[in-house]
């Protein structure tokens, strides 16, 4: 059994339908989704060392089962540019959370690679009439406002995936609008097919959001992902 299958089994045993970010990342990594670098530090020194290995800029977030809205309690710091800043950020976050959420359990911090660029979305859902479907379109937090997405039934072919790219109004972002990096459409098609294969590899999954999938100069990178059983 793969690591992702074990995690899914465990979540089912715990009675959870929503996988954590970490678990979701593991599932999607197994189907070939490119992910941003991410690591976990439980001390300031460790945070500094890990940061130096990951490269910059980075973001840091509190890891606590008691904190839901991380930025509201000062639990998020962005644009960390060197090892020293990383150590400082760790201490600052712990102090902020102690002060704004007294008594909250603090496990440490999550360090994220910061990526910037146009945002896409890939998703999976199950239609009551037609069964498993994959969605592709313009992502980000305003995805439901722009509603620039298109669907295919799963399984789908590479040609279907390429056609999806032509169906969205914002397809210009794929070609590198305004000096942004362009997307390798074949590569993106591979990622869409990979995400769609989640249904086949992990039949317990009912919904997936990969949002945003960011277009960077080093290729596509998934920043956040959610898997629902």
């Amino acid at each position: 059994m793969s690591r992702a299958q074990e995690l899914i089994k465990k979540a089912q045993k715990d009675g959870r339908t929503l996988l954590t970010l970490d678990e979701s990342r593991t599932v999607l990594e197994e189907v070939g989704l490119p992910l941003t670098k991410m690591s976990f530090a439980s001390s300031a020194v460790e945070a500094g060392k890990l940061a130096a290995v990951m490269g910059f800029p980075l973001a840091m977030k509190i890891s606590s089962p008691d904190v839901v809205h991380k930025s509201d309690v000062g639990g998020v710091i962005l644009n960390i540019n060197d090892e020293f800043e990383a150590q400082e950020a760790f201490e600052q976050i712990v102090m902020n959370v102690d002060k704004n959420a007294p008594g909250a359990q603090i496990d440490g911090v999550v360090i994220d690679e910061m990526v910037k660029g146009p945002e896409l979305i890939i998703g999976l859902t199950i239609d009551p009439q037609f069964g498993p479907m994959v969605m592709f379109g313009i992502g980000g937090t305003l995805v439901e406002v722009y509603h620039d997405v298109t669907f295919r039934l799963v399984p789908l072919t590479e040609r279907d995936a390429l056609e999806m790219m032509e169906e969205i109004k914002g397809q210009g972002v794929l070609d590198g609008a305004r000096k942004m990096p362009a997307v390798d459409r074949k590569e993106l098609a591979k990622i869409i097919l990979g995400v769609a294969s989640v249904f086949e590899k992990f039949p317990q999954v009912s919904q997936v959001d990969v949002n945003p999938l960011v277009i960077t100069k080093d290729g596509l990178k998934s920043v956040d992902a959610r898997v629902v059983l």
């Binding site: 339908t17 929503l18 999976l124 439901e144 997405v149 669907f151 997936v208 629902v228």
Partner: peptide, 9 residues
């Protein structure tokens, strides 16, 4: 819907 995708479908 517990996902963006579910809400958009």
């Amino acid at each position: 819907a517990s996902s963006h995708t579910g809400a958009l479908a």
